[in-house]
Design a protein around this nucleic acid. Structure first.
Lengths: 142, 142
DNA sequence: AATTAAATTTAGAATTATTCCAAATATTGA
DNA sequence: TCAATATTTGGAATAATTCTAAATTTAATT
């Protein structure tokens, strides 16, 4: 869990037109500390431990700033709350229908271009989410 | 736009433990009539034209029954309302960030197994969503 | 065709997740 | 330091969905 230095997150934010604030640092630290794809509410609860005054609205604002700055991703594996992920490498998400945990799954490089989009469409990004059961749940038969 | 016969939808529903009702037929007909990935609310508005008494709660119930019976899919391309799709062939979705329309994109067979899920994980299904611009929006520079 | 048990429909209330708002505060650059 | 602008905050507002309980409908059985 290598911590991105303050300099780096500061620079990322400011080149995207955002300010570097203690709250944004804190929210980012929460994401990096435990990469379990927390929801905004879970980030809020964790961030409050170090910064009791932080508000939910700020957590949403910070997460949005981090996503727009390329420091985190918003993950949409199911209906329900959005989840957040500081892993910026190309990867996809496995959503366990048993325990509702989300796992990162690495993607081979070539997959990026494997989807045959018809001509005229301009692809910006793509997201693959896999649903099923994680090893724990698969073996206990959920 | 071939219409699945009543017999077929009836059978699909009942083998999944659901009853065949006029509302479920109507909701299914709406999906098949215009395959533009409507939200529950859009389905509601369209269904009301033929069946003015139908309620929003029923639309949600019917969509759920159709999805669980394998007659439709719930599509989650972005935050915001879920969308519904009666195309049960293997395909993925292209979400245009310009006009917010959703397009079906066919997938080559092999893609199903292309994602290298670690051992122990049991894959049930997967979803690929592509974001970008459709030809209309790409050419007009949105 | 009448009876019945269970599923479905309905309207509205409740809930969940997120966005909006306006005032107070913090940050950045001059 | 000062001013301009962005951010934070708490609470209100909104959007999407789920829940509830009573009325109705369906499908199976007499």
């Amino acid at each position: 869990m290598k911590k991105t230095s303050n300099i780096q997150i500061n620079e990322r934010l400011s080149t995207s037109g955002f300010r570097f604030t203690p709250q944004r640092q804190q929210v980012y630290d929460v994401l990096v500390a435990k990469r379990d794809h927390p929801t905004a509410e879970e980030v809020f609860i964790r961030a409050k431990r170090q910064m009791p005054e932080i508000s939910m609205a700020t957590v949403y604002n910070c997460l949005d700033a981090l996503v727009r700055s390329g420091l985190a991703r918003q993950v949409t594996v199911d209906r329900g709350a959005a989840r957040f992920c500081p892993n910026m490498q190309e990867h996809c998400h496995f959503y366990c229908d048993g325990c509702h945990r989300v796992f990162d799954v690495d993607l081979p490089e070539k997959d990026s271009s494997a989807v045959p989009v018809p001509r005229g469409f301009r692809v910006d990004r793509f997201e693959i989410s896999i649903h099923g059961n994680c090893p724990d749940c698969a073996s206990s038969g959920k």
